[in-house]
Every structure is written in structure tokens, then in C-alpha cells.
Amino acid sequence: MNRTVLAVGALIALAVIGILFLGLGKNPNQIESPLLGRVAPSFALREVGTGKTIGLEQFRGKPVVLNFWATWCGPCYEEHPVLVANARNLGSSVQFVGVVFQDTEEKIQRFLNDRGSSYPTVIDEAGKTAIAYGIGGVPETFFLDSTGKIVGKHDGPLTTDDLRANLAKAMGQ
């Protein structure tokens, strides 16, 4: 019995198998956001349809649901009705804002006309807001509390349950 070989071999085997096992089932494309717990990067962007400039600061004082999406993204079609319905139900107690990037105003307008909307949608033309929020794919949704701090983030299409769970955090419950 060669103990050196055994020891070194066992070490390698344990390390390799252990790490790979822990890695199983994780999605390598899901990035943990370092923005959690920080104040959301401020922006003022043009609203689709009205041309008004909407700034994030103007919503201080209530929780904000910040949804990054695009018309070329499949799952965004899936979650759109969820967002619209919840924004209607919650009324003015929570502010919903859609941020569209890598897209054209014309397509967004058509999307909103076809599928309805109940909250403002702004367009991030050079994609800089998306970069500041560390967007890796769409849809991604940030939840801000009333002080403008990011308290939750959801990757992929939202369900009403996801929304409620994150909003609870944003409302400080």
C-alpha cells in the first residue's frame, strides 16, 4: 500500500467529486446581484408613448417594482399579464416601472397596445441603465423599498407569488 498515492489520490477525488456534486443543478447563467442592499442607481428616462422623462427619484416614498424587459424576449410575454394585473390591483401603493432596452420604440408601442399596460414604461436607449443594474438577460426584476434601496431581485419571468414574496421585503415586512 502506497500511502502517498492513496492520500493524494483521495484528496483529489474528494475535491473533484465534491465540487462537481455541489455544482449540479445550479444554473451557471444565474448571477447573484451585488446590488442587493444598495441604493438603486438613479436614472431619468423617456417614457414610451408620452415622451415624458421619468426619473427613479420621483417615486421615493413607496416601493418600486423595476422590470427590465424587451419585445424580443419570449418569457417577457409570459410575465407581462402578471405585472399588468398586479399593478392594477395594488393601485398607487406600489409603483411599477418597465425598462426596455435593446429595442425600438415602435415595437414597444405595438406590444403595449396589443397587450395592455397599467404603469409607465421607459426606454433605455444605449443600454447604460441595464449595465448599471447588472442585467445579464431579460426579464429581470428589481424590488426597491421606499428609500430607494434594492431589497430583492428576480431573474426570469415573474409569477404573482414571486412578486408578493419580494414586495413583502420591499414593504419592510
Binding site: 500500500m1 502506497n2 498515492v5 492513496l6 489520490g9 473533484v16 462537481l20 456534486f21
Partner: peptide, 25 residues
């Protein structure tokens, strides 16, 4: 099939290390 291949890798590693440790000398 990830877990299945990982299982095979683990088995092959254990077999190899056992063989090496007992027979290399």
C-alpha cells in the same frame, strides 16, 4: 445525465486510486 456521469467518474476515480495505491509499488 449529469449525476449519472458524475457517479461513473466517482467510481472510476475510486477504482483507479485503489489500484494505484495498492499496486504501484
Amino acid at each position: 445525465i449529469g449525476p449519472t456521469i458524475l457517479g461513473f467518474l466517482a467510481a472510476a476515480l475510486v477504482f483507479t486510486i485503489a489500484l494505484l495505491a495498492t499496486r504501484i509499488d
